[in-house]
Amino acid sequence: MGGTFLAASSALGSVPAVLTPLIASAILLAVRAWIGVTGVPLSRRVSLLLDVVITILGVLFLTLVIVRFRTIG
């Protein structure tokens, strides 16, 4: 399935490809907010990891949106 998914670069602009990092980053943002509000103690490393993952997912999402604009726009 992964091979089929990546067989065409235009598939990167498909709805599932764009939606996946969108949902993932939204979930992690919700977790981050929950941690911040409730005061769950996190080590600096975990805290940094969370922020880096959210940033990477956000950048991935934006990249896929641009790919989507270019391939079907």
Partner: peptide, 9 residues
């Protein structure tokens, strides 16, 4: 995310 997501999808 919501704004760009809706525009894109």
């Amino acid at each position: 995310l919501a704004a760009v997501g809706w525009l894109s999808l």
